[in-house]
Every structure is written in C-alpha cells, then in structure tokens.
Simulated scan of single mutants.
Amino acid sequence: MKKYSFISIICIILLISCEKETNIRFGFDSRIDKSSEGLVIADISDGVDHIMLKGILNLSEGEAEVTLLNSYGDIVYSSIIKAPEQWSVEEAFAARPGYWKLKYKSHNGIGEIDLHLWKY
C-alpha cells in the first residue's frame, strides 16, 4: 500500500513540475467611445518565435486607428477603420525580443473592440 502511495506522490509532483506551453495574449476587449484610446505593452522574450495580431473591431460611427509597433519602434501594422464597418485581422509576425506596443485610438468612433496580440 505504501508503495502505491509513493508512486502516486511522485506522479503528482512530475505533473505539477512539468513546464506547460501556453498561449499568452495582450490587448483589448471593450467598448469604444468618441475619445477612447488604449495602449498595451507586451514583453516578447527570446523563446517566442511568432506573434499574432488577431481581432475584430465593430464601428457604428466615426473612425478608429489600430497600430502595432515592434521592439525597435517600427510600425509593422497600421489600419484606419471607418464606420459602418466590421473589421477583422489575423496576421502573424516574426517576433523580435523586446517591448512591442499595440494601440488604438478613436476618432469620434462608437463601437466595440476585441483585439489581441498573441505570443506563441
């Protein structure tokens, strides 16, 4: 009986201690009003090969701007969305280690945003 308890404890320890690969996301999931804006800064480490910009923006009025800057400050993605539109994006980028910035700015826009930067 003690032998089975010891083996069970070893198995539980091994399961808990194993490193698990997870997708981590940074971004926005909120309403947009005429003066809203957002900024998320993601720390991309050496172990990340790619990042994915994925999301939807629904505008019923005005405009909104979405921008992604890499760790060097270069704009790697930019789009201006004009209402009425349901805009979507799903685009992958080679990850460069450092701080990436995902931001949006409303220009009298009304709607919703569900936009994230995924590390994988």
Rank of each mutant, 00 (worst) to 15 (best):
M1D: 09
M1A: 06
M1H: 03
K2I: 06
K3I: 07
K3C: 00
Y4T: 11
Y4W: 08
I7L: 15
I12V: 11
I12L: 03
I13Q: 01
I13G: 06
S17V: 09
C18K: 10
E19M: 10
K20G: 08
T22K: 12
R25V: 04
F26S: 05
F26E: 11
F28W: 10
S30K: 15
S30E: 15
R31D: 14
I32R: 11
I32A: 11
D33T: 14
K34G: 14
S35W: 14
G38I: 12
V40G: 04
I41D: 07
A42H: 03
A42L: 08
D43Q: 14
I44L: 04
G47F: 07
V48A: 01
D49E: 12
H50L: 13
I51H: 03
I51N: 05
L53C: 01
L53T: 03
K54S: 09
G55D: 00
L57I: 15
L57W: 09
L59I: 10
L59K: 11
S60Y: 09
G62C: 12
A64N: 06
A64E: 12
A64L: 07
E65S: 09
E65N: 08
L68N: 01
L69I: 01
N70F: 01
S71N: 01
Y72D: 13
G73W: 03
D74W: 02
I75S: 07
S78Y: 04
S78A: 04
P84E: 13
E85R: 12
Q86W: 03
Q86D: 09
S88C: 01
E90G: 09
E90N: 15
E90M: 15
A92R: 12
A94P: 08
A94S: 14
A95S: 02
A95E: 00
R96T: 02
P97M: 03
P97Y: 06
Y99E: 15
W100E: 05
K101V: 14
K105E: 11
S106A: 01
H107D: 08
H107K: 08
H107Y: 12
H107E: 07
I110S: 07
D114S: 14
L117W: 02
K119T: 13
Y120H: 09
